[in-house]
Design a binder for these strands. Sequence first.
DNA 1: ATCATTGCAAAAGATTTGCAAGGTC
DNA 2: GACCTTGCAAATCTTTTGCAATGAT
Lengths: 186, 186
Amino acid sequence: MGTNRLVLVVMSSSVSRQSVPEEAPLGKVEVALTPQERFEEYLQSKGMRNTEQRRALVDLVFSHHEHFDADSLIERLPRRGQPGFVSRPTVYRTLNELVDAGLLRRFELDGRAVYEHDYGYPQHDHLYCKQCRRLIEFRSDEFLRWRDAIAAQHKFRVLSHRLIITGICEQCRLTRKRPKRRQDLI
Amino acid sequence: MGTNRLVLVVMSSSVSRQSVPEEAPLGKVEVALTPQERFEEYLQSKGMRNTEQRRALVDLVFSHHEHFDADSLIERLPRRGQPGFVSRPTVYRTLNELVDAGLLRRFELDGRAVYEHDYGYPQHDHLYCKQCRRLIEFRSDEFLRWRDAIAAQHKFRVLSHRLIITGICEQCRLTRKRPKRRQDLI
DNA sequence: ATCATTGCAAAAGATTTGCAAGGTC
DNA sequence: GACCTTGCAAATCTTTTGCAATGAT
């Protein structure tokens, strides 16, 4: 069970500084507790129990920094009967708990829930390539400033936002076409 | 059938209309054809037929400028057996066609598809009140400029974007709390 | 007449829930 | 021991699909 301390990197982008290479590493985010410890804390505070299944899922979820959905997480689990197996309902239940605990963030893509690391990871937004379906992360303080300004104009108290810019990534633009999905829910 | 219904009301939001030029009130865009005519044209170009059901739905959809989901549209239809009735599958089929035809835009909120007028309506984004579940529209050219700049930095070809700022609207902030929904998919 | 479209029933896909058995504190 | 969790099966919710009957051109 890898208790890997979070050392994560995001691409930063600043529109104002135009000569900067468009993908400069932003830096690491230090966190006091591992996700496992942080979740334990949350569970205790709620009078919930830290079970083997929950620990297994936290390990799996934080073993890769990738966007994922419930199904792809389930695919990475051991099969029924194998040690470490977790049932589908429990996976869904635990994902909800991890979101509540602030360890994961959830959003929607093409009609299903997608999760990403939230704990110890800086706020960012996404470019979504319609062709290869990759999510490309970027960070923009300028956007956040604009967001807060527009909210202030509407006397709206911001809690969060979701921004996805859909299009074609450079890689795909320079390559041949690929099949499309059934629907365009963005 | 929805147990927890979205409250889908729109404020054609005119922002503090004083000094911010990019924040003009959302108005209509001049279009040559009515939605009905525009859809007819689309259908013909695709070798599809303009049926009573399709006309009825276009009328209903464009009779109010509101965000809506399939269920709330179905509720506004005459009952089974009444003239003007349209079955649930046909409603879904027609909504997809209206999106393809460019008359409606679709996005997701709390796990289901929400539609809004696209044809003859200017591009805009949304503030979403977590409490009353209202969607408040706003328009920002500054945001669009920023979007295109950030995309250019990533050599990303923009096709569209989806931005929803979630929080508490002024009205709700000045009132007492209301119950929350089951999930926070934004 | 041809062929798209409808309504019905049923299916499908994603996620949630009731409940008895088992695990954690 | 109390009571939270799990896995199973089944239910839900939303949306889609197969198909025979109906309707548009």
